[in-house]
C-alpha cells in the first residue's frame, strides 16, 4: 500500500493499472519540484546575470567564477551539500525545499547565460536610439530592452524547464517522493521493477512531450517584431 492505494499483483495489466494512481501522486510532486526549481533558477540566474554584467571586476569576476562552479559540478553533489551542510549552519529546510533549491542553483548558472545572451543581442544601437529619443534609463529598459529580450529568452528558458523536469528524480536521494522514487518503492516492495519503472519512463515521455508542445505553442504566440511602444 502506498498513499492509501493498494496494488494488485495478480496480473501485469491489473498491476499496472493499480499502481498508476500512486505514480500520478509522484508525478504531481515532480511537477511541483520542477516549477519551484525553475522559478528559483529564473530569479537566481537574473541576479548572477546582473552581477556578471557589473562594471567592477571585483563584483563580476566572483560572479563568473561562482556560476562556472555551479555549472561544472554535479547536481547530486550540490544537493548532498545543501542537504547535509546547511543544517550544520542552523538552516533546516524540508527535503523538498532543499531539492528545489539545488535545482534552482544548478540551473541558475545556465539561465544567467540566457539572460546575458538575450540582453547582449539587443545591442548598443538600440540603447543609443533610446538615448537619442531622450528615454530615461528605466523607460529604455522596460519599453525597449525587455520587450525585445523576452522573445529571445523564452525559448531557451523553456528548454531548461524541460531539463529541470528530467533532473527531478535526483531529488529521490534525499527522500523526496517524486515519480521515480515512487516507482522504485513499488518495485522494492513487489519485487517487480519492470512494470513500475517502464511506466515511469512512459509517463516521463508524455510529460516532456506535453511540455515541449506547450512551449512551442507559447513560442509561436510571442510577438517577434513590431512591439509597439505604448
Amino acid at each position: 500500500m502506498l498513499f492509501g492505494f493498494e496494488w494488485d499483483t495478480s496480473g501485469p495489466l491489473v498491476f499496472a493499472i493499480s499502481i498508476l494512481p500512486m505514480l500520478l501522486v509522484g508525478m504531481w510532486v515532480t511537477i511541483q519540484a520542477t516549477v519551484l526549481g525553475f522559478f528559483m533558477a529564473l530569479v537566481l540566474g537574473l541576479i548572477w546575470a546582473v552581477l556578471k554584467a557589473a562594471p567592477s571586476r571585483i563584483v563580476s569576476w566572483p560572479a563568473k567564477a561562482f556560476t562556472e562552479f555551479l555549472r561544472d559540478t554535479p547536481l547530486i553533489v550540490q544537493l548532498f551539500f545543501l542537504y547535509y551542510v546547511l543544517p550544520e549552519f542552523g538552516i533546516i529546510l524540508p527535503a523538498f525545499m532543499t531539492g528545489a533549491l539545488a535545482l534552482g542553483m544548478q540551473y541558475s548558472a545556465y539561465t544567467s547565460e540566457v539572460y546575458r545572451a538575450g540582453l547582449e543581442a539587443i545591442g548598443r544601437d538600440q540603447r543609443e536610439a533610446a538615448r537619442a529619443l531622450n528615454l530615461t534609463t528605466v523607460r529604455t529598459f522596460t519599453h525597449v530592452i525587455v520587450p525585445q529580450a523576452v522573445p529571445r529568452i523564452v525559448p531557451a528558458m523553456g528548454n531548461y524547464l524541460v531539463s529541470i523536469m528530467k533532473d527531478v528524480p535526483v531529488l529521490s536521494v534525499v527522500t523526496v517522493l517524486e515519480m521515480l522514487n515512487v516507482g522504485r518503492i513499488i518495485g522494492d516492495r513487489t519485487f517487480n521493477y519492470l512494470i513500475p519503472l517502464s511506466l515511469v519512463g512512459g509517463l516521463y515521455l508524455i510529460m516532456t512531450l506535453v511540455a515541449s508542445a506547450g512551449l512551442r505553442l507559447l513560442g509561436s504566440r510571442l510577438p517577434k517584431q513590431g512591439i509597439p511602444l505604448k
Partner: peptide, 26 residues
C-alpha cells in the same frame, strides 16, 4: 533520440539496472 531525450537519465539508469533483468526473465 526521442526516448532517451524525453526521459530522465536516472530513470534510464534504474530501468537498465533493475527492470532490464526482469524483462530478460520474461
Amino acid at each position: 533520440i526521442e526516448v532517451f531525450r524525453g526521459t530522465s537519465l536516472l530513470v534510464q539508469l534504474f530501468w537498465l539496472y533493475f527492470a532490464l533483468p526482469m524483462a530478460g526473465q520474461a
